[in-house]
Design a protein around this nucleic acid. Structure first.
Lengths: 130, 130
DNA sequence: TATCAGTTTAGAACGATTCTAATGTATTGA
DNA sequence: TCAATACATTAGAATCGTTCTAAACTGATA
């Protein structure tokens, strides 16, 4: 609790009640993928009623401080990932679920990027059948 | 024109005026990435006023017949790709532009998929900086 | 050419997200 | 410690891409 307050302050975020609750959940050491909706549901189960607007604000605030990653998954929702290291994913469309790939992968045979463009990062998405 | 009508019929799609116009544009031999909005704009420039609802319907109809691919790009929009072969992309967020990668790439170091799951396909998205 | 299933359309509805503006709260510095 | 104020939270309205609705239209068929 104290740690989380410190942690928020260190990231120039006021440790408000809501942010502390959300940060405690998100940064408990277990990497998570959340959307505003799944996070809201989880918080309700934890008896923490926090408005959707605040959840959106908080996710974006955390994202802006680099505490969360936005995922490049096509879906109606925006996914936020507590694992901010560069990594890849398995994706099961059927289950609408993402699974981290935490091993190093190499992509070979990459063509040159277009003129005046530089490669920022490479994302690999492994689609699962079932 | 005749060819496009045939082409539509062969894919169990009635060659209506609107579908013919859209198919003529999309399948002119040059691969394209479109969203409902960019397609609508293009059609307006070609003096073809087709309602947004029809554009959405048509894109989905074509998708369902396998004539278009839906792209897994995070963006507010859904991108459709006239290149239905398996391939990868460069993506410039700044330009909101996709560029096909038409060379074979290999991904090595892939971990085993989760239990009972099979890998369907691997998609590589190369993010560009500028 | 009449019939009818399939198609198009304007506009309403939808669902995720953002905005608004009123209220509340953490920080500050006297 | 407390008042001032800058920042946060909130309910509900607004927005935006997309889908739905139901009425009008059109291509296929007999």
């Amino acid at each position: 609790m104290k740690d989380i307050k410190h942690f928020l302050r260190q990231n120039s975020l006021r440790p408000t009640k809501q942010r502390v609750i959300i940060a405690n959940y998100l940064f408990d050491g277990v990497n998570k993928h959340v959307t505003a909706e799944t996070l809201s549901n989880k918080l309700l189960k934890m008896k923490a009623e926090i408005s959707l607007a605040t959840i959106y604000n908080t996710l974006h605030d955390f994202y802006e401080k680099g505490l969360l990653k936005k995922l490049m998954i096509n879906s109606e929702r925006i996914y936020f990932d507590t694992n901010t290291e560069h990594h890849h994913h398995f994706y099961s469309k059927k289950d609408q679920k993402l699974i981290d790939i935490n091993v190093d992968m190499k992509v070979s045979g990459l063509p040159k990027p277009p003129k005046n463009k530089k490669i920022n990062k490479i994302e690999v998405l492994v689609h699962l059948d079932n």
